[in-house]
Amino acid sequence: MARTGVLAALSADQERQLTALAREVSFPVGTRIFEEDGEADRFWVLRTGTVHLDLRVPGRRPAVVDSVGPGGLLGWSWLCPPHEWHLGAEAVSPVRAWEFEAAPVRALCERDPLLDHALLTHVATVIGRRLRAARTRLLGP
């Protein structure tokens, strides 16, 4: 696996432990990968393609608030209780990704506090960037 995004935030040993839990998946254009308020039981590291993150707007189509591309982390809600998606996600081009089930990754984090810290630090950075992107797109210039 390429060392970008979350993988670049880990030591070589931490990356090896984490990637041992990955499986390759793909999503065709238009696939709803997850829905806002659904159970966040996995996450993905994108290899190719683009996914739009969106927010429900009553009476309208979901509002796109950010995009995730190659190397990007898709999904952080798996790490933070109550483990429910805060946004929805849809593939807007063919996507290939590494998929991780949350429970084994959380168990790995419990056994390795340094890995836990590295993942939490990366996820906090992703959350901050996504909040800024959502604010920019929703409030606009």
Rank of each mutant, 00 (worst) to 15 (best):
P70G: 15
P62T: 07
A91Y: 05
T136Y: 08
L139H: 09
A63H: 06
C109G: 04
V92M: 07
L138G: 05
V68I: 15
E110I: 00
V68R: 14
R129S: 13
S77G: 01
A133H: 14
T136M: 08
V57S: 01
R56H: 14
A97E: 08
P81T: 06
F100H: 04
R111K: 14
E99G: 10
L115H: 08
C80Q: 15
R130I: 00
G71L: 11
L79N: 02
H83W: 11
P113M: 12
P104G: 11
R137F: 02
G71W: 09
L87M: 07
A91H: 02
L131S: 12
P81M: 09
V92I: 15
A102G: 15
W78M: 13
A107E: 13
W76D: 10
F100E: 07
R96C: 11
P82C: 09
L115M: 07
E84M: 09
H83A: 08
R96Y: 01
E84S: 12
G72V: 08
L55S: 12
P104E: 11
P94I: 01
S93I: 07
A63P: 08
V92E: 12
H86M: 10
R106S: 03
V123H: 00
V65Q: 01
E84N: 07
V123A: 15
V64E: 07
V123M: 05
D54F: 04
G71Q: 05
L73C: 06
E110M: 05
V105D: 01
W76S: 02
A89L: 08
I127N: 05
G69N: 11
R135H: 09
R60D: 00
P58M: 01
R56M: 09
